[in-house]
């Protein structure tokens, strides 16, 4: 079973999250610059005089597609790396993915998702090979 993780995180946490994911063997991801807000609503920015209210905040959405059994570890890693404890840390959604195709080879599903040095090939090794 294939899953998709959509993680909405703080812009400034992208590098930390990317690094942490590489360390567990998650290399492939898409990053989308998104705007929005959660329950904190927005923030005040400095204007010419005083402040003004901005309700569409810049966030990063990470999209990662992976096999079911790797979801928990990946989500834990993202939470650990992206968390500050302040409002606005973001949300993670996990949804099922019906099919995956790799355009270059025509492979599908699990084959389309696996590559050398990925999270499955380094299971059992504590540090695992360094991803490029």
């Amino acid at each position: 079973m294939t899953k998709k993780i959509e993680a909405i995180i703080r812009e400034e946490k992208l590098n930390d999250v990317k690094q942490a994911l590489r360390e567990i063997g998650i290399v492939g991801m898409n990053v989308i610059e998104v705007r929005g807000h959660g329950r904190q609503g927005g923030i005040e920015l400095a204007a010419r005089t005083g402040t003004y209210y901005v309700d569409m905040l810049s966030k990063i959405q990470l999209n990662i597609v992976l096999s079911d059994h790797n979801v928990d570890k990946t989500v834990e890693t993202i939470i650990k790396a992206a968390r500050t404890g302040q409002t606005g840390d973001g949300l993670i959604f996990v949804t099922p993915v019906d099919q995956v195709y790799r355009i270059r080879t025509g492979e599908r599903d699990k084959e389309a998702l696996s590559y050398e040095g990925d999270i499955d090939t380094r299971r059992g090794s504590k540090n695992g090979p360094k991803a490029k």
Binding site: E44, L45, A46, A47, R48, T49, G50, T51
Partner: peptide, 13 residues
């Protein structure tokens, strides 16, 4: 300084 006392020294200010 005026903008700073209100919030931050905004460049727009």
């Amino acid at each position: 300084l005026l903008a700073w006392s209100d919030k931050k020294p905004s460049v727009l200010g």
